[in-house]
Amino acid sequence: MKKSLITLAVLAASGAAMAQSSVTLYGVADAGVGKIKYGSGGTTPGNDASNKVEFQSGSMMNNGNSRIGVRGVEDLGGGLKAGFNFESGLDLDDGAALGSGGGFWGRAANMWLGGGWGTLKLGRTLHPSFYSMATWELTGAANYSVVANTFGFAGNPSPRNSSQFSYQTPTMGGFSAELGYIFKADNGGNARWDVNAIYANGPIGVGLAAHKQKNGKLGYGVGAKYTFGNFALAASYNDKEKLRRGFSLGGSANFGAFTLTADVTRDTRNQMGKKYTNGLLEAKYALSKRTFVYGALLRLDSTNNYGLGVRHNF
């Protein structure tokens, strides 16, 4: 009887410990067909080229990149938690790994500590500028986002940083902020910082971000979104490190499972050439909470690009 009680106590304690720690496998499968005229080869947004309709995976005209990842969190007690996130890209064309950072875990490779005081994150991760744009951008930062393809992510050309130390404040009344920093030894001799300030509460989402590399140009972006009923309106102003700056204006309408989005950008300055007016038209139909089909037409710097696809989140 005593042995049985001891065994039950050990199992109960083990179950409690296991309940305090969890690991989750997740991912995205996204594939379709499309035609891309913008760019000059490769498979990354802004670097595609084809004059033929072909299979699309991880391209500018997919809603997102296919990926598989693992994340975990452990409750350390006293309100303190520790966690990690590893994420790898996947090309559904041939099954190859797509590491946007050059490695297998190129999409994410980081760990963090968090509590009531905020969250400290270390490693490769999406930077503060990305999260600022994601607060108000209408497509959910899709690959074919006209804002991201024109001005980057709040003026930042890429969505991720490697070797980043970042601190995010707790959310207070809808307000939060994050500061990311990369030491010069980890960034080719040039230290880099990236910061955001976000307000997201009810129908209003506002994001402000700025970033700069030593000996580089300041980049920044500010945007806002207002949702009312089945409709949303968004506008922004972005400066892509003095190379390109301008504004965006768009709206979306939701009718049950169907969502239609239109977004337009306009250059006010473009060091690389003429000033462009770019536009996106996106249609999505939800087959379930985790699966939807989509179609998008992107007018980007005098080129017409389009794609049809399906995305499943798991």
Rank of each mutant, 00 (worst) to 15 (best):
Y131M: 02
P170H: 05
M133Q: 08
A257L: 00
V293G: 12
D91Y: 10
S252G: 03
A234D: 05
T139G: 00
H312Y: 08
L122I: 11
G15F: 02
Q271W: 04
R266L: 05
M61S: 10
V206M: 00
G250R: 05
K225S: 14
G103Q: 12
A200S: 09
T24P: 10
G229D: 07
K121W: 03
N161G: 06
S129T: 08
G77A: 13
T43H: 10
G64D: 11
L98E: 13
T43K: 15
A108G: 15
K2V: 15
A97S: 06
G221I: 06
G106N: 07
L11M: 05
N230P: 15
A148G: 00
L218F: 11
A235T: 15
A96E: 13
K274A: 13
E54D: 15
S21Q: 04
F247W: 08
L280K: 00
L243H: 08
G79M: 04
A209R: 04
Y306N: 07
L280P: 04
A154L: 04
K212L: 01
T171I: 08
N238C: 13
G246P: 08
R107D: 13
Y285N: 09
Y38C: 06
K2N: 14
P45A: 03
G72K: 09
A96C: 09
G279Q: 12
L5E: 11
T125C: 03
G188T: 14
G307V: 02
E54R: 06
R71F: 09
F175Y: 09
V206S: 01
D263L: 05
A234K: 01
S166P: 07
N254W: 11
R311Y: 03
W136M: 06
W105D: 09
N47W: 02
T277D: 11
Y237M: 12
M133W: 00
A283F: 00
V33S: 01
L298I: 05
A96G: 12
L281M: 01
K284R: 04
K35I: 09
G34F: 01
K214F: 01
T268G: 09
G279A: 12
Y38L: 10
K274M: 10
G256S: 02
S40T: 15
D301W: 01
S22P: 11
V33F: 00
V264R: 02
K81H: 04
S302E: 11
L243F: 12
S4W: 05
V28L: 07
G173K: 08
A257M: 02
A16G: 13
F228T: 14
K274V: 13
L300G: 01
F86V: 14
L80H: 12
H312A: 10
A29I: 14
F258C: 03
L243Y: 07
W112S: 08
